[in-house]
Each structure stands twice: as C-alpha cells, then as structure tokens.
C-alpha cells in the first residue's frame, strides 16, 4: 500500500480573516464596543467632573486617584473629557452611516434593477464624486459652509453613499439575472414586490458589512477633521480635537493625547473585528 502526498491546496479553515481563533472571540468585540458606547452615552451621568470645569491648581497632572486619566493644560479632567468626547464621533458616525445607507441602497436598487439612463446617471454621479479625495472634499465643504456636527454628518454621508451604492448595485445586477427573479416576474409580481420579496433580503448581509466599514471610516474622518481643527470646535470635547490639543504637551503630559487616541483605537478595532466577522459570515453563506 502506498500513500501519495497530495498536491498542496489549503483546506479552508474557519478562522477570521486576521486569525483570531479564540473561543468566544466572536463576542468580545461587540461586547467591548457596546461597553464603550454605553459609557459615552451615559457620560453626563458617570463622568466624575464637568468636562469644562477647570481646576487651576492642578494643571498637567498625571494619572492619579482623583483624576484617573490626569488633567490637561487648563486643569480639566481628562477622563471626563474622554467620556464626553465620544459623543461627537458616535453621533457623526451613526448619523452619517444611516443617511449614506438609505441613499446608497435606494440608489443601488434603482440603478441595478431599473437600469438604463437612471443607472448611467447615478453611476456617473458616484464616479464624479470619487474624483475628489474624501478628506480634501470635506475640507473644502467645511471651509465654505462652516464646521459643526450637522455639516460633518452631511459631508461624510455624501462621501460614503457610493460605497453602499456600488455594492448594492452590483449585487442587484447579478441577482436580477438569476432565474428565480425572472420566474417571479413570470409569476406576475410587480417589480416593487419582487424587490421586496427577493432582492432586498439578500442585500442585508452585504449592507451589514458595508455599514460597519462605513462606520469606521466615518469615525476616522470625523476624528481627522477635528484633529486638523476643521471639525468639531472647542470647547466641545471631542477625541480627535483632544489628541491635537495634547500634541504640544506630548513630552510633558502624554496622557492628554494618548487616552482619547486609545479610545479611538478601541472603537475602530472593535468595529473592524465586527466587520470582518460579518464579512466572513456572509461569504460563507453564499456558498
């Protein structure tokens, strides 16, 4: 009897893209993210100090029992500011994703299913919008129309809708050709019914993934713009802005920049893990 070693193709193993194989690792990211969101939402209740309150006797103090994250250059408690500072990123993140989702999905369905001129127009619109890099466009818009939460949400949503649009459109195009959609047409359903019954349900897994990616991108964009001084303005607490405030004090008081930065890191990391997990789930079910 002889055994032939077979040609080397990898078995598909069921691991997350980035290789986390811990049991329960699936739940870790959503749990942490939920915790952070909860903390931020409850910040008015749980923050030990008022984020604008200045203690002029204790400037630039490092982490201590009274101030877990230390104080900044005008004596404000960094922990409280970190808690409050999560509000703008989350509002902007969630708000812009919702708007972009609705716009992008509607456009994608109409373009993919209706086709023709509408598809061409929408596609061109998305393309043209892609011709200005995101951050640059945001800078321009905010420069002209002024900074502020609603403007931020608006511009980031506008920047993000093509993502959902493309994914949905491509999916609808491929599904539309499938026999079961044609069969439904033959059965006598109206287009609207077909969209509702057959097409939309299958886009939901895809949208879960794009929504997560969009969220990461939105938070990053908001933080970046606030860092540059063009997003959220002082004295409102905001993670990106706080990181920038701490840059000059980096050698003396690293905690001013590092803690808000870590908060951003944690949120983004969790969002990323969740997105990966969702992406893996949706591609497996396709097979």
């Amino acid at each position: 009897m002889t055994i032939i070693p077979s040609s080397r193709q990898e078995k598909r193993r069921n691991t997350l893209r980035f290789g986390l194989r811990l049991p329960g690792a699936d739940l870790l990211a959503p749990a942490v993210l939920a915790l952070v969101i909860l903390a931020v939402v409850l910040s008015p209740l749980i923050a030990p100090y008022d984020p604008a309150e200045q203690d002029l006797l204790r400037l630039l103090e490092g982490p201590s029992v009274d101030h877990w994250f230390g104080t900044d250059i005008i004596g404000r408690d960094v922990l409280s500011r970190v808690l409050w500072g999560g509000i703008p990123p989350l509002i902007v993140g969630v708000g812009s994703v919702l708007i972009a989702l609705v716009l992008g999905t509607a456009a994608g369905v109409v373009a993919g299913y209706g086709g023709g001129v509408v598809d061409g127009v929408l596609g061109r619109l998305a393309d043209i919008q892609m011709s200005i890099p995101g951050l640059v466009l945001a800078l321009l818009v905010l420069a002209i129309f002024g900074a502020g939460v609603s403007n931020l949400i608006f511009i980031i949503a506008i920047e993000s809708w093509p993502l959902h649009f493309r994914v949905v459109r491509s999916h609808v195009l491929s599904v539309r050709k499938l026999a079961y959609v044609e069969a439904a047409e033959l059965a006598g359903h109206t287009r609207f019914q077909i969209v509702r019954r057959h097409i939309l349900p299958s886009t939901l897994p895809l949208l879960a993934v794009t929504a997560t990616v969009n969220f990461s991108h939105a938070v990053l964009a908001e933080a970046g713009l606030s860092f540059l001084g063009i997003g959220i303005q002082p004295p409102t607490a905001d993670w990106g802005m706080m990181v920038s405030e701490g840059q000059t004090q980096l050698s003396a008081a690293w905690w001013i920049s590092v803690f808000p930065g870590l908060a951003l890191f944690v949120v983004l990391l969790c969002a990323q893990l969740i997105g990966d997990w969702l992406a893996q789930r949706t591609s497996v079910t396709k097979e």
Binding site: L264, F265, L268
Partner: peptide, 12 residues
C-alpha cells in the same frame, strides 16, 4: 495598524 488613526500613530 489599520485601527489606529494616522494622527494618533504619528504622535505615538
């Protein structure tokens, strides 16, 4: 690296 905002990484 992907979860770290560029400006934060820069400061680190």
């Amino acid at each position: 690296l992907q979860s770290t905002p560029s400006f934060f990484l820069a400061l680190i």
